[in-house]
Computed example of a mutant assay.
Amino acid sequence: MIRFYILLFMMCLTNSCASKQETSSQPDENQIFAGTFVVNTLYGRLIEGDDIIMKINDRTSKVSGLAACNTYNVAFTQKQEKITFSHVVSTMVICDDETMKKERRFLNIFTGIKEFNTKGDTLILYNEGKEILKATRFIF
């Protein structure tokens, strides 16, 4: 739980240091896939706890965060609702078996994700039309 609070503090600090940019009245399709999300479901199963965090930066095309035990980073390429991810890089801390199992299930999704959709504050990742992950935007 302490890792969650550390990550939350780092995200707040990062966001507060970012320079303000002008907002356009025109929607930018690249702005859709951005924000900080807490993962709720993987492969249709509810995830217990709030220990899987996705911080999506559309300017650097990277996803980073906490994957139950370790921090991770993965680059992506997006074109409208289509998306592909590069190889995941993560730290190598060993946690209890159940946490490590949950983490592996999460980190393995990036190899198969092909599409995404956002509905309000919900992000959904798909592989060939099948829902793989659902996450809720984390609002500070």
Score class of each variant (00 low, 15 high):
I83C: 12
S64T: 04
S90T: 07
Y126A: 10
I139D: 09
K55C: 04
T71S: 04
Q31S: 15
N117E: 14
E81R: 06
S19G: 10
G112M: 13
Y43G: 14
K101F: 06
T122V: 12
G49V: 04
D58I: 00
I94Y: 14
M1A: 10
Q78I: 09
G120N: 15
I132Y: 01
D50S: 12
S86D: 13
M11T: 00
A67K: 00
I32F: 04
F85T: 01
C17M: 12
R45A: 06
R45L: 06
I2L: 14
A75R: 06
G44P: 05
P27G: 07
K55T: 02
V93G: 09
S90W: 01
I53Q: 00
L46S: 14
R45H: 07
K119S: 11
L66T: 00
L13P: 01
N70V: 06
A68P: 00
D58M: 02
N57S: 07
T136Q: 12
I132M: 11
H87R: 11
T36C: 06
L13W: 05
E103P: 01
R104K: 14
S19Y: 04
R3P: 01
T136G: 10
K20T: 06
L107S: 04
K82V: 06
G112D: 14
I47Q: 07
K82Q: 14
M100E: 04
L46W: 07
N127V: 11
N15S: 05
K62P: 02
F140E: 03
L133P: 00
T118S: 10
K114N: 15
N117L: 10
I83A: 11
E48Q: 12
V89T: 11
N73K: 10
P27C: 09
L42V: 06
D97M: 15
R137T: 06
E98R: 15
T14Y: 05
A75Y: 03
I124T: 15
F37H: 02
N108A: 15
E103R: 01
L46N: 12
Y126D: 08
E115L: 14
T77L: 09
D58T: 05
Y72E: 01
D50E: 14
T118I: 11
L133T: 02
T71F: 03
M100F: 07
E128G: 05
M1N: 09
F138T: 04
G120H: 11
I132W: 00
C12P: 03
